[in-house]
Write a protein that binds this DNA or RNA. Structure first.
Lengths: 236, 236
DNA sequence: ATTGAAGGATTGTTCAACGATCCTTAGGGT
DNA sequence: ACCCTAAGGATCGTTGAACAATCCTTCAAT
C-alpha cells in the first residue's frame, strides 16, 4: 500500500522526462547537420541544395526545410530568399560582435559566483580540471571542448536557463570561426592557465580582479582570431 | 555633376535595405501572428489549429507550419508533438528566469555608457522622454511601449547586434506576462521616474549607483509580476 | 472510479506540381 | 573587347493532396 516514502517515485520518473520527448525527423536531421558543420565537414559558404540533401538523407524537401529553419535560427546557416541556405561564413565583424557579447555576459556572470549554487561552481571547477588534464595529455582538441564547457559553466553561475541557452548559441557560432585557426594547440593552450587564474581569484573572493582577468582573456582571444581572419582574407 | 556631398546618397539608400528584402509568406504570417499574440488578441494557452488558421489566412498547412516554427523559436508559441502549437503560457519560473537574464544584461550594459556612441546614448534619452510625455498625457499603453524601447536602448549601449537581438527576445517574451497585469497604469507608472533617475546617474558619471538603481528597478518589477501571477493562479 | 476499446479529429511526413526567382550563357550592339 | 539584353535551365516558394501516426473523446465493462 501507499506510504509517505512512495511519494517520491513520481518525481524520479519525471526527472528524466526529457529523454521521452520524441524527436521529430527534422530535429534529427538538424542534429546531424549541426554536427557536420561544427566539426568543419561542411565548409562555410557551401550551399546546401534542398533536392540534393533531401534525396541524400532520404527525407522530403519539406522536412529538410524544417531542419534548415532550426539551424538558421542558431545562426549556423544563413537563408537567402529564393537562393537557398548556405553554411554561415563568419566575418571579422561577427567575431567582434560575438566577443563583445561574450565579454558582457561572462564578465557579469562572474559576479554571481558567491550567490551561485554548489552544483554551478563545481561545474566550473570540473571543466577547468578537464582542460588541464587534456592539455597534460596533449589532447588539444579536447582542451578546446573543455574550454567551451568552462565558459558555459561560467554562464551557468547566473542560474538562468535563457542565459545558458544564449551563451551556448554564442559558443556554437564561434566554433565556425575556430576553424580558421590552424593549430588547435597554439589557440587553446594559453587559456588553460587563464582558466585557473580566474577560478583562483573567484575563490579568493577577489571578484573584480577575476572580472578584469576574464576581460583581458577574451580580448586576447578576440585579437588572435581577428588577426587570423586578416591573415586569411583581408577583404572580410 | 557629382560633388562630395553627393557621396551620402548611397548610404541613405542602403540604410533602408531591410525593407527591400522580400519576405516569404511564412514570414508575413509569423509577423501577423506575433503582433496578435503580443497585443493579447490570442490568449495564452490557446491552441492554433493548422487547418482552421490555414484556411482563415489563406495559406497552406505547410506554409503555416513554417510560420509556427519561427514563433516557436521566439518562444511565443510552444509546440507539442502530435498535439499542435499553443500560445505560450508563462509560468512564475519563466518570469523569474527572464528577470534574472534581464538583470544580468541590462545592469552590465549600463557600464558601457561612457564608451557608447552618441546615437546609442541619444536613443536612451529619447525613449525616456517619450515615456514621460506619454505618461503626462495619460497614454499608459504608450508608456509601456516607450519603456520597452528604453530598456532596448540600454542594451544598445553595448553595441552588439546579438545582445540587441537577445534583449528584444526577452522583452517580447515578457509581454506575454504583462497581460496578466490588469491596469497598465499601476504597472508602468512607477518606472517612468526610475528611467530618469538612472539616466541622471549615468550622465553624472555615477555608474555603479545607476547599476544599483537598475537592479532594484528590475527586482521591483519582477516582484510585482510574481505577485500578480500568485494572485491569478497559485498553481503555476 | 478505473480500465479498455472503438471512432473521429488532428498532426507528421511525404510527394508531385507549378509559378517565381535566380544564375548562367549566348548573342547582338557599341 | 565591353556592356546590355534575352533565352534557358536550375532551384526555390508555395500549394494541395494523400496516408500513417498520434491524440482526444466517447462509451461500455469491470
Amino acid at each position: 500500500m501507499a506510504t509517505a516514502r512512495d511519494q517520491g517515485w513520481l518525481d524520479a520518473v519525471v526527472a528524466d522526462r526529457g529523454r521521452l520527448e520524441r524527436s521529430s525527423t527534422a530535429q534529427r536531421v538538424a542534429d546531424l547537420l549541426r554536427a557536420q558543420i561544427l566539426e568543419g565537414a561542411l565548409a562555410p559558404g557551401l550551399r546546401l541544395s534542398e533536392e540534393a540533401l533531401g534525396s541524400a538523407l532520404g527525407v522530403s524537401r519539406n522536412t529538410l526545410r524544417e531542419a534548415f529553419r532550426l539551424l538558421v535560427h542558431e545562426r549556423l546557416l544563413v537563408h537567402e530568399y529564393s537562393r537557398g541556405v548556405f553554411v554561415r561564413v563568419l566575418t571579422v565583424d561577427d567575431v567582434v560582435d560575438l566577443y563583445q557579447a561574450r565579454r558582457l555576459v561572462e564578465c557579469a556572470a562572474l559576479r554571481y559566483w558567491r550567490s551561485a549554487s554548489a552544483a554551478a561552481t563545481d561545474a566550473v571547477r570540473r571543466a577547468m580540471v578537464e582542460a588541464e588534464e587534456a592539455a597534460a595529455a596533449d589532447r588539444w582538441v579536447d582542451v578546446g571542448t573543455a574550454n567551451m564547457r568552462y565558459h558555459q559553466a561560467i554562464a551557468g553561475l547566473v542560474g538562468s536557463a535563457r542565459v545558458d541557452a544564449a551563451v551556448a548559441g554564442l559558443l556554437a557560432e564561434l566554433r565556425l570561426a575556430f576553424h580558421v585557426m590552424g593549430d588547435p594547440r597554439t589557440f587553446h593552450e594559453p587559456y588553460v592557465a587563464g582558466n585557473r587564474a580566474i577560478l583562483d581569484l573567484l575563490t579568493a573572493g577577489r571578484t573584480e580582479e577575476a572580472v578584469g582577468r576574464m576581460e583581458r582573456y577574451l580580448l586576447d582571444a578576440e585579437e588572435q582570431l581577428v588577426a587570423a581572419f586578416a591573415r586569411l582574407d583581408p577583404s572580410r
